[in-house]
Design a protein around this nucleic acid. Structure first.
Lengths: 198, 198, 198, 198
DNA sequence: CATGAATGAGGTTTCATTCAT
DNA sequence: AATGAATGAAACCTCATTCAT
């Protein structure tokens, strides 16, 4: 029982590393098996297929991410504080899980099968969470009423994704958390400020 | 030889269609050849490899995109007008080139080899253009001095990419241009408004 | 131990069902184990290998078949009555054991290893039985002296096998016993009639 | 054009040999390729899959067999002569094509996918041919009216298949044609003689 | 220039069998 | 005796690329 769980974790850990440094197609089951210290066939007792393994990682990690976000937001009051915390945690999580995140950001999220997959559902749960925060912000009067909340979400998540993606593609050479404060600032400004006549 | 140029275009057009509806790995040289009405071997007289063909499309289209942006921005004065125009054209271009854009957004931009590739350089040229606009905006006093222009760029391009990516993954069912005005608004607000004490 | 015997039967019964609905190669040990309600490894305590299990079924059932034939022929007098009874019982047995028979007729009997196997020996015992009946028929004057008894056997068994095989391949949709009388008739005619100048 | 045809034949010939000495599952594509003196991949330019290759052989050979039967029966008059000729040619063909026939008799004919396959259709054409001969025989008064022609077919084809199958399983050690005359005799007797009161 | 037949490495996956518990 | 997790060999098939015509 517990042994099976451990073995599954062991395989997923190896897979995260391998998928992290090569693309899905470049990665081999044989390398994952070698890294996990088991036989290739063993992987197929725990996962239906290579893609199943790939998406299982996405599912598990995205769930974990959501749970951590929840924990981190607990007790935080005020929309702006919530968003600041969310930005910080988002960057922090990706900073500390670069292997996983490389797969998620650069491949999984973008795969045509992803939208039909279970990790995608988990990912959507996160989106909803964000939307909920924004909604509360609008009800509190922090966010202007004329702001389309879906666009606000695009602004927030798009900026974060862009920051993370560039960081990844540039080789993770700088500290991802460095700008967390300014990112929050900009995003909050975008959705909260008085509309200026431009 | 003009003939050579035409043949190259013919292959690229077929490739855009094939890469547009399947992922890079799912797409076959044989299908591209069939669609172009030529033999598989012929492709290798115009392109070094499958990846070369893939990136060549990216290069050509990104160059074209930059040229069009230039043309569109010519004569436009004022940072905010420039940004509005840029947002509009960005969405317009992607709306009218969904096949190409699916490859670019969902795969090319995210490929590990992309940063070393020529389309990436072209893409960086576009980034520079954007940065230049933002810089002018800061010199004009429109954009606050305390705004990191690289972050402003993340905000602008990240939001646009996010909007476009979701549109693609959702099956291009709505009009991508619908929100162009509000997107501009939000982004401009983010980088131009007085810093509010939050 | 009677327990051992029972367990063996339990495995064989499950195997008959599984081999009956899939071919030898399509059938899995794992499915047989599942159907028998035991672990895969357990099978290997009762059978040396998959093929051993497969042939063991053949052996057991063919033995059973021979025994039943013996019982059925007991007290039957006259070659022609014996053959009629044999034909009837042959068709009856196969009608009532379609799963087993599908394996036997369509795969086992035809396997390259079959001739070296134990069920084959059992099968040969049945052949001998048939030959004995035919021999008696010739001694009684029922069967012409110029008939090669081995050919007569081919005629009898070939016809029966053909009838059964077609029935199986056509999905067992009609009553296999329907024609038993006419089959006997034809076969008996073939081997018993006066030689006609044709 | 002609080259392609030759290459296809070359592959089929190698496949016949390999399938002839091993069962379908034991045979490897790699061995067929080696025997044909080509690369494995080449086979897949001519055949969709291993099974396609397997059945293609069946189709081609069965067609050939039917054509030859036709040619051989041309000009032969009288049902009994036709049947004699058919028996002779059946045994002759199988004697001279033992590799192919081993596959056909021992595996193909008996495969669950065979009934849905194209060689099966060709095989049925042969059956029809036989039935037609029998029908004419009944109209001519040679075959008794009370004989079910389908059973007569079972008698004829079943006997032939049995003779051939035993010959194969015994290692093709004797001359398959040896008994052709007696086989015809027995079968004709079965279906043509006056019904004897038994 | 164009062709398209041939290549062949390489990957995923299956499954009978083993063996430590 | 029973288990069932682990094995690992082996096989089919794909497809980008080459090269003789």
């Amino acid at each position: 029982m517990v042994r099976k769980r451990l073995r599954k974790q062991q395989i997923m850990q190896a897979a995260i590393e391998v998928f992290g440094k090569s693309s899905y197609h470049e990665a081999n089951i044989s390398e994952i098996a070698r890294k996990a210290g088991i036989a290739e066939g063993t992987i197929y007792q725990y996962f239906k297929s290579k893609q199943d393994l790939f998406f299982s990682i996405g599912l598990e990690r995205t769930k974990d991410f959501c749970k951590q976000i929840d924990l981190n937001l607990e007790g935080v009051t005020g929309t702006s504080s919530k968003i600041r915390k969310l930005v910080w945690y988002y960057l922090f999580y990706f900073k500390t899980n670069p292997d996983y995140v490389r797969s998620l950001m650069l491949e999984m999220r973008v795969s045509r099968d992803f939208v039909k997959s279970s990790p995608h559902k988990s990912f959507k749960a996160f989106s909803k969470q964000v939307l909920q925060i924004l909604k509360e912000g609008q009800e509190d009067g922090l966010i202007r009423n004329d702001v389309d909340l879906y666009l606000a979400q695009h602004l927030l998540l798009g900026t974060l994704e862009h920051v993370v993606t560039r960081w990844l593609l540039k080789g993770e050479k700088y500290d991802l958390l460095k700008y967390h404060d300014q990112v929050s600032e900009l995003v909050l400004n975008g959705i909260c400020s008085e509309k200026k006549p431009l």
